[in-house]
């Protein structure tokens, strides 16, 4: 665990400047008269105005529950699927990989809409409501958003894990393990997975940024009142504050992950040169 507070502050300064620029830019380009119509500490949804504080904390917590729930489910599902795929014969592995390439290209919007409509369709035809499909009053839903949000990260992580697995399985320690008579599944679970997990951490940035974008679409389509919905409906100072609320903890996570994967960075540096 090595983490320098100094480089984090440097990164934070850069983020704050960036958000400041983005927040001011629309007013600069299109004139300030587009900005003054509402109080600074309010956000408006469909012509109704709400105060930003302390609403935002509750919504923040809700969104982050969905986000990390989905991340956890996605990671677990990807690892389990990878394990079972490695036990399959070679040609089936290829089929799985091809299917993954197809599923990866489905837009997030498509998956969200299909799932929502699918559940309504099942309810209509059989009367079984698997999960609530939208927020009603102050009754937040968790199951469906978490599942929906976890699908695309699962596919991406699964694909990356399969590729890493392919590289890993030809390494000497696996051969040694086989030679001393350990079973294939034992080696995979105990030894290979441990190495894969450390390599998977290198892809955190892509996955996180991708999931934040997905979170927005999930919140919008399921009509959840989460942090992204506030971010969408605020302007000016309130927008900057909300964006910073997302940026500060995530950048801390990024910084920790980055300073702990120096090995990977060095490899990238070699490739770039």
């Amino acid at each position: 665990m090595n983490f320098s507070f100094r480089s984090y502050l440097k990164r934070l300064r850069s983020i704050i400047f960036g958000i400041l620029i983005i927040g001011i830019m629309p007013a600069l380009l299109f004139g300030t008269n587009t900005q003054v119509e509402q109080n600074v500490w309010e956000y408006s949804i469909k012509n109704f105005k709400y105060p930003l504080f302390p609403d935002v904390f509750e919504k923040y917590q809700y969104s982050m529950t969905i986000f990390f729930g989905a991340l956890l489910i996605g990671l677990t599902a990807a690892l389990i699927l990878t394990f079972f795929t490695t036990l399959l014969p070679r040609f089936l592995q290829r089929v799985v990989y091809g299917l993954l390439t197809f599923f990866e290209s489905l837009p997030d919007l498509f998956i969200v809409v299909i799932l929502q409509f699918g559940i309504i369709y099942i309810y209509r035809s059989s009367g079984v409501l698997i999960a609530n499909v939208t927020n009603v009053y102050n009754n937040p839903i968790y199951l469906l958003p978490i599942l929906t949000l976890s699908i695309l990260p699962t596919i991406q992580l699964f694909k990356i894990a399969l590729l890493l697995m392919k590289d890993e399985q030809h390494k000497p320690y696996v051969t040694v393990g086989r030679a001393i008579g350990l079973s294939r599944s034992y080696i995979t679970i105990v030894h290979v997975f441990r190495n894969i997990l450390t390599s998977l951490v290198q892809y955190y940035k892509t996955i996180f940024v991708f999931m934040l974008s997905n979170l927005f679409i999930v919140e919008y389509v399921f009509n959840l009142n989460g942090i992204m919905n506030i971010l969408l409906n605020t302007k000016g100072v309130a927008f900057m504050v909300t964006a910073l609320m997302i940026a500060i903890p995530f950048s801390l996570l990024f910084e920790i992950a980055e300073s702990n994967t120096i090995k990977g960075n060095r490899q990238e540096g070699v490739e770039a040169a």
């Binding site: 850069s14 983020i15 960036g18 958000i19 620029i21 380009l29 969408l232 997302i246």
Partner: peptide, 29 residues
Amino acid sequence: SFLNDIVQATLYIPTAILTFIFMNSLIVK
């Protein structure tokens, strides 16, 4: 470095929201 700041910030703001802010201001104008 100016653009680098923006890149760092846009990591945490989905592109759709970023575009929406600008487009909305444009429509109001």
